[in-house]
Amino acid sequence: MTADDISRLIGRVALGNREAFTDLYSATSPKLFGVCLRILNNRAEAEDALQEVYVKIWRDASKFAPSDFSPMSWLIAIARNHAIDRIRASKPDAVDIDEMVDLSDETANPEKEAILSSDRRGIERCLDELPEARAVAIRGAYLEGYSYQELAEQQEIPLNTVRTWLRRGLLKLKECLER
């Protein structure tokens, strides 16, 4: 289809001719879909955008003025601008910097490292004061991630005994750390 053919179709669409609109769609939709797809990079979005582009073309066909430029340029500009508008609409609004939450660095600094190191030494000291089997159970449950059942099987003791050891061991640890 030539540029003159497309110009004539747009002119007939401006007069409300549905058959001309169908012919215009058939002749130009692959190219306009390609433009939308290239910009939006999502097939479903591009299909939705193409539908909206043709609604605009139907509504604004009377604004088309034949000139030295190709009528396809006018149609592509509509598709391109619409696709860009969709991208802009999907982006979140900018937030005022004064409204931002404190974005402090949560990584450990030397002071935090010293405190954590001291806490670790205290916990290890207190674990050493517990009977060996109970210390092993606490380390297994809370540091290595074993389940109560796994600990019971490893130590060959009843499950309720593991629970009791852990509860009493944690109470002893708390007492020790508070000293």
Rank of each mutant, 00 (worst) to 15 (best):
K112L: 14
P66M: 09
R121L: 04
T107I: 04
A27M: 07
P92M: 05
A3P: 01
A89P: 00
E99N: 14
S104T: 09
S26G: 08
S70N: 14
D60E: 12
G145L: 06
A152W: 08
A49G: 02
G34H: 11
E19Y: 07
A135R: 10
D5N: 13
K172E: 10
P66L: 08
T22F: 06
D60F: 07
P71L: 06
R18W: 01
A20Q: 06
Q155W: 03
D85R: 13
V13S: 04
L116Y: 05
D48F: 01
E129A: 10
K174E: 14
T2R: 12
Q154W: 11
N109I: 04
S90T: 12
I138A: 02
K112R: 15
I84H: 10
P30W: 11
L116N: 10
E150A: 13
L32C: 06
D96S: 12
R59P: 00
D93W: 03
L40Y: 04
P110Y: 05
E175R: 09
N42Q: 14
L9A: 01
E156W: 10
D5L: 06
D4R: 15
F21T: 02
D68R: 14
I115H: 05
T161H: 06
T28M: 05
R8S: 09
E153W: 00
V101K: 10
A77T: 13
D128G: 10
L75E: 05
E45D: 15
L103Q: 13
S26K: 14
I10L: 13
L151D: 01
E156N: 15
I57K: 08
K63T: 13
R43D: 12
V35T: 13
P71H: 08
Q149N: 08
E113L: 15
I39E: 12
R12P: 01
K172A: 09
I6T: 13
D85W: 00
E106N: 09
S118M: 08
L151Y: 03
D68W: 04
E52F: 00
K174S: 09
G145H: 07
I6H: 07
S73A: 15
I115G: 00
A114I: 14
S67G: 15
A46C: 10
L171T: 07
I123M: 09
P71F: 07
L143R: 14
S104W: 05
A77Q: 13
I138H: 02
I6L: 12
L15H: 06
E47A: 08
R163A: 06
